[in-house]
Design a protein around this nucleic acid. Sequence first.
DNA 1: TGAGGGCTCTGCAACGATGCAGACATAGTG
DNA 2: CACTATGTCTGCATCGTTGCAGAGCCCTCA
Lengths: 346, 346
Amino acid sequence: MAGPTLRDVAKRANVSIRTVSNVVNGYAPVSDELRARVQAALDELDYRPNLIARNLKQGRSGMIALVVPELDVPYFAELAREVITAARARGYVVMVDQTDGDGERERELLSRDSRATMFDGLLLSPLSVSAEELRARGNRVPIVLLGEHIFNGSFHHVAIDNVAAAREATAHLLGLGRRRVAAIGDQPYATGETAQLRTSGYRQAHAREGLEVDERLVVPTPRFHRRQGAAAMEQLLALSEPPDAVFCYNDLLALGAMRALTRAGLRVPDDVAVVGMDDIEEGQYSTPSLTTIAPEKKEIARMAVDVLMESISGAARPPAEIVVPHRLIVRESTTGQVPASPAIPS
Amino acid sequence: MAGPTLRDVAKRANVSIRTVSNVVNGYAPVSDELRARVQAALDELDYRPNLIARNLKQGRSGMIALVVPELDVPYFAELAREVITAARARGYVVMVDQTDGDGERERELLSRDSRATMFDGLLLSPLSVSAEELRARGNRVPIVLLGEHIFNGSFHHVAIDNVAAAREATAHLLGLGRRRVAAIGDQPYATGETAQLRTSGYRQAHAREGLEVDERLVVPTPRFHRRQGAAAMEQLLALSEPPDAVFCYNDLLALGAMRALTRAGLRVPDDVAVVGMDDIEEGQYSTPSLTTIAPEKKEIARMAVDVLMESISGAARPPAEIVVPHRLIVRESTTGQVPASPAIPS
DNA sequence: TGAGGGCTCTGCAACGATGCAGACATAGTG
DNA sequence: CACTATGTCTGCATCGTTGCAGAGCCCTCA
């Protein structure tokens, strides 16, 4: 099982271990003749460096960890993809773990014998654990938070402007003349403030138009899956005055809501217009396709990895609050117009 | 940056390094008094074991790597989720990497200085690299293949019975009285044989009914995304005698195909019935919901991790060909019937 | 009383690699 | 020709941990 070590190669080539190491790494100058001899030995034994040993010696592992609630939620899958790509570009590999939004699981990360110490840095997308808690457990590993708004600024943090994004999404619906615009996804009691920020944007959009928010149209959901979107939509349809538009706090909720609408025999957007957030690929292919707020996922990943790398190299910058651009992408679920061409979204 | 080591704790508690190690690991018996003293020192310094050093000493890293083509393809995201969960249950963490189906990237894995040596085992879902190649590069790390059929049996391999699954899917359509059943996703020239197995099942189903396959209805696609599904469907619709049903080699192709059908003003399943494969969650919520072949993803992940763990512990079993169950899930895209209740799929 | 046996605790070596300082030979310089 | 610079190559120490062998010590029992 155990492969040959530098020692084995050295013995075979009749040189010192150090010289073999030099050849492997191309470090110090080595005469052509010796290099050839060592290389031959390397090839014959099919030497592979033991990266664990190298890591120990060098004090870094070349690995970062990405912790998300659920990897099979498209937004996180797409984000993970970008993070892995960005990390690779910097010579890092990414360990991915999931917490299922379970606070316990998130806290485990910070516990004494968590594997966290194996990584040079952590990218966290926390749901339950507050920044306070994170800070309290003085972790030695640099951390960058993704997508959660943390007021006290203890950590680097990368996200879109949630208030503005929600405001624009809602304004889009109001701009279409809809007057009973519902919101699906509020989480008034959650530790994570993202949902609250979105609700706040939703309210701002109404305020700017001088409109009142009908509180019955603001539906909280414990999670952000299709299932909850459908359930919330059914609840809204049961109202005496159902909504004529819905702003959902993510695309999955929106897709669930659309499904419920279709089942109820209602047409989207004719009867009810729907907007989501995240711009997951699925929304481009749904029927109807989904109007949404698109965060620059590539940018989020790139910035997060960049900032993390910086922290790893020891730059003791004060925690940065990094805001990544987003934009509204209008599709059929609000305008009902099939784009001229191409027929297939890229 | 560097935290306290066993040495630091030992100095502080005035004991040997070895004793601190014993306390940390609960190994040898340590008197209550000493244990308390050491524990105090551990707490005061907030000691965290250096897992890299531990790994080096123990010769194992507690990490496996999962390599998939694209993490943002729902099937792989869902699979990754299960793999991570299964691995965690066995005390392992999972490094995830993507190859984008790029043969180069897959081969990189096997190259001399790939990080592969850092892991105790590899779970591979290869697209381009053949088993031959994998075997040729004698990697020292145990490997389990996912979802590719490898005839020569050089590696452990976990997958569903692709031929049977495709046959059942096609038989379902034929059983509904459809007579022009198309197939989207053939890859006659691909190294990976999965597509070919599915085509073979598709043909078997026809043969069993004594039906001829119209070769124009078998549409190859370079990849398995929504985009290719839509394109293939458009191509099929342009035929003088378009199909009345389609078997797509995965759900994404099917969703793309449905999208193209809807755009073309056709009704699913009335005009064209659609079946996919993979049972990704999206198919439950699409309009119409998608009939599909559901592989036991949990089981695939569990088996793959189990077999890998076994190889890691040195069991030199001959490469196992593990077949995981699948089943046909009938939804609206073929029967057109909205299930009575519940309205929301679980 | 003294050999034997637990119980605690310790020190050394090792995992496989790299940093560093220097050895040795050769070449260059005044 | 002595002396320094240069180019190659080597050995030792080290990263932080654990395996192993054994050192004391106290107790038991013949």
